[in-house]
Design a protein around this nucleic acid. Structure first.
Length: 261
DNA sequence: ATGGTCGGTCCCCGA
């Protein structure tokens, strides 16, 4: 079972890239972030033509997340539970039903960026992550195969950044942000890519500005977190850099893992 | 060469 996550920075602008990647990579599930449009404008029929069911949590202009799945989806959660005051579309979760008795729970996550750190945007980031931690705990109690994938907007360690000094006061590296990400791992989740790779300075995002892609000035902020039941079945995890080098690329590139289920 | 980006929308904001 191949599960991918990709912040596409507008589904409207990126549709050809996404369709092409789906046809060549053939994941069973693709988690999307930054749709930048309302759910009604999501290109559902184009995805269905490739055999994907769509669960969409969109909003006007900003944010927006979706799950594409070759299997049917049930029990869809739009937004984090017990966080009604959150006005931003940053979370969607579904039960992916493989058979009547087997399946897995998958979420598409777009955590807040949080910059600048002296603003309410940073406190919102931390508050949002605290709510994600709380919900992640309740998911573990079910003892299911769980994959929480998406743009966490956290650089887990300095080795995941091309220039840690330049980023040391950024919301993506602040100790408050890293401690929330680490809390998810300490609960029992495994970060798929790092668990299988010792390599440093491998990235999932390169800014559009200042030739960042060509200089490989990137950061690794897109992560697949696995419950113990999922981590036991993890076979591979890959960051596919190819889409970032194409024309009209997103500033993120897909990360995907294979789970023997 | 003192610049160099996108995408969505309301002429600026977010990343």
């Amino acid at each position: 079972m191949k599960i991918a996550s990709w912040n596409i920075n507008s589904i409207k602008a990126r549709l050809p890239n996404v369709l092409q990647w789906l046809e060549s990579a053939q994941p069973e599930v693709l988690l999307l972030q930054e749709l930048k449009g309302i759910s009604e404008n999501f290109p559902t029929s184009e995805m269905e033509n490739l055999g994907y069911n769509c669960a969409i949590n969109g909003q006007k202009a900003y944010n927006g997340v979706a799950i594409l799945s070759k299997y049917p989806m049930d029990e869809i959660n739009f937004g984090l539970p017990d966080y009604d005051e959150d006005q931003q579309a940053r979370y969607i979760e579904a039960w992916v039903r493989i058979t009547d008795k087997t399946g897995l729970r998958i979420a598409s996550i777009y955590a807040p960026n949080g910059n600048p750190v002296d603003s309410e945007k940073f406190s919102y980031k931390i508050d949002w992550m605290d709510h994600l931690i709380e919900h992640s705990k309740t998911l573990l109690n079910k003892e299911e195969v769980v994959v929480l994938g998406g743009d966490y907007n956290v650089i887990p360690a300095d080795e995941d950044c091309y220039d840690p000094i330049a980023w040391q006061n950024d919301a993506l590296t602040r100790p408050e942000s890293r401690s929330r990400f680490r809390a998810l791992l300490n609960l029992g989740y495994t970060e798929a890519w790092r668990s299988l790779n010792k390599e440093t300075h491998v990235y999932s995002f390169w800014d559009y500005q200042a030739g960042a892609w060509h200089k490989d000035n990137g950061i690794r902020i897109d992560h697949l977190l696995l419950s113990p039941q999922a981590a036991d079945k993890l076979e591979t995890c890959t960051i596919d850099k190819k889409p970032r080098g194409q024309t009209k690329a997103s500033d993120h590139t897909p990360v995907w893992c294979e789970i023997s289920i």
